[in-house]
């Protein structure tokens, strides 16, 4: 079967050139040849990232109407609007891979697509909005700064834009925490309580240990991923501990201690059973979040249809005018 061999040879050649491009730190662009697995991995990763931004609006949206004052409300609105924007940059990047946006929505709504598990935790007090901005956005920044150098051009460019905007998210959260931590005894308690609940889920955001991470090896060779889960998690802990100390908060981990020799903080083991439960859909808010997305999408159906009908009517009118003229 000489034909098959020939096609196979060609594929090997393309694969070599693809890897050489990546090794030379040259970005892969939408129309370039790429292995199917690279395309599939990126569609999965970028769309999950987009879903996370969109679902991430829900826990925070919960507090827009109850923000303590107008300044905080305007800030929270702007932040949640940014998250919508980030979701759209990412869906747009995913679509350059040839996947249809409605298909991605369908995957989310049918429960086939994942999103960051952190958004399956409830926001029970105003302090949670501070803790989310500071910790959740803080962890996201560590991850996204690393992804700015990812090998796929459109994904990398979306990350650059997102990182530019994300810094405000973390700072506004930390500012909320400062107000509470320097406030009354009740406010201090609120801050500590929110910190206790968000600390561990934030560490889980970086995913399983490197030794347990299923896609890591190939994704590192293809430079989709630039740093390992454990590396990024350590970076986040080292960054965040002094910030917690400044607030006078106690880190809810008895094993947390500075390790002089390593030059890093040591910290305790994550409850991986909880992590797996939330990933599998059994977290406190998994069902509520997907239901809210489905509901919003269904309720928007008439708007999408009306807009198309209006656009068609306008186009027809224009055509008629042009014919007459």
């Amino acid at each position: 079967m000489p034909l098959l061999t020939c096609a196979h040879m060609e594929n090997v050649d393309l694969m070599d050139r693809f890897q050489q491009t990546i090794d030379a730190e040259v970005k892969i662009e939408p129309k370039d040849w790429m292995p199917d697995k690279y395309r599939k991995t990126l569609i999965r990763q970028i769309s999950q990232h987009a879903h996370s931004e969109i679902v991430g609006m829900l826990p925070e949206g919960n507090w827009i109407t109850r923000a303590p004052n107008l300044r905080r409300k305007a800030i929270l609105l702007a932040k949640v609007q940014d998250e919508a924007g980030h979701g759209l940059y990412l869906y747009s990047a995913a679509e350059t891979m040839g996947v249809d946006r409605d298909f991605l929505f369908e995957e989310l709504h049918e429960g086939r697509a994942k999103y960051s598990s952190i958004f399956n935790y409830p926001t029970t007090s105003w302090a949670d909005i501070g803790a989310i901005g500071w910790l959740v956005d803080g962890a996201a920044i560590v991850n996204q700064v690393s992804l700015q150098r990812t090998s796929y051009g459109p994904y990398s460019r979306a990350m650059v834009r997102i990182c530019k905007e994300e810094s405000f998210h973390q700072r506004q959260g930390y500012e909320i925490m400062i107000s509470l931590a320097k406030g009354s005894a009740v406010q201090k308690k609120m801050a500590q309580d929110a910190f206790n609940r968000w600390w561990w889920p934030s560490l889980m955001m970086f995913g399983p240990h490197d030794s347990e991470s299923t896609h890591s090896a190939q994704n590192t060779i293809w430079k989709i991923k630039r740093h390992s889960n454990d590396e990024l998690r350590q970076k986040f802990v080292d960054m965040t501990v002094p910030q917690a100390e400044y607030l006078g908060l106690t880190i809810p981990d008895p094993n947390l201690a500075w390790n002089e020799e390593r030059g890093h903080y040591d910290f305790g083991e994550i409850d991986w059973t909880e992590f797996m439960q939330v990933v599998k859909g059994n977290g406190p808010c998994n069902k509520e979040r997907v239901a809210a997305r489905k509901d919003a999408y269904a309720k928007g159906e008439w708007v999408r249809e009306a807009a198309v009908a209006h656009a068609e009517k306008k186009a027809a009118r224009k055509l008629k005018e042009n014919v007459r003229a």
Binding site: L88, Y89, S92, A93, E95, T96, R101, P154, R157, A158, R304, A307, V308, H310, A311, K314, A315
Partner: peptide, 11 residues
């Protein structure tokens, strides 16, 4: 800068 979905040019 990127892409988006819309019913017509104005939108």
């Amino acid at each position: 800068v990127g892409s988006l979905h819309a019913a017509d040019a104005e939108m």
